[in-house]
Amino acid sequence: MSTRTLLWPGLVWLLLFFAVPVGIILVISLGQRAPDGTIRWGFSLDNYLRLLEPLYWTGPFWNSLGLAALTTILCLVLGYPVAYSIARRSAAVKHLLLFFVILPFFTNFLVRIYAWFILLRPEGWIAWLLRSLGLDLALLGSPVGVLIGLVYGYLPFMILPLYATLERFDFSLVEAAHDLGASRWQSFWKIIFPLSRPGVIAGAVLVFVPVLGEFITPKLLGGGKVPMFGVLIEEKFLGRVPDWPLGAAMALALMILVSLVLARYFQQLKESRWVG
């Protein structure tokens, strides 16, 4: 059996469950919403032009972009030391710690976000603790609450690729840097960080891209007060006033944006010339 034959099952799968649905979405996005909420088929770019209206630009879109960027940065800052520290343990400890990192995946995502809902309530102990410290911060129904939920949910996706990179890291390079007079800080920024770039980029993509389209976390923890693009799309399909053609246009626009981010990612990887 040639290796090309091995491609077929996957290709057929992609065609049936990716290409065809995207085609359907595209067709829907070119139609119009009928007054009764159903689709009036057609061929117009009206829905895409509507996306340029400030209504979509100002709020949800920038919220999504901003929260995705902030989540990515926070996951990187929190995840890097964790990944680094795990990578430097002995094999047995490494596996145990990695198990803890993926342990949350054993529980349904929705259940875990509900758990945060309880934790972040105004009558929950976190809010109480903050209040007793003199911080009257609204967590639930605020961007802060959504951000906490997003960082919580996506942190493992940052830690795992970072760990994979750092685990293979040749730490004699760090010794060489120290030997040549570099401080810990200098050897991190000049040697470790640049060489772990493939892991940083992979982690950033794995966090940024899905957060851009997230709707469960902002819906539950934002309580509808933190409009995000993903929430808007979901409402266009499942909300009380459905508008499938507009929702389809929004979904496709988001997909194109994500593709651009991914293209940049592969570009960056290619620039890591020393790999391979």
Partner: peptide
């Protein structure tokens, strides 16, 4: 190590 007046040539070279 960064304060010692000695340099090491590593077995695997450890080039950056």
């Amino acid at each position: 190590p960064q304060e010692r007046d000695v340099n090491l040539v590593f077995q695997n070279y450890a080039l950056f």
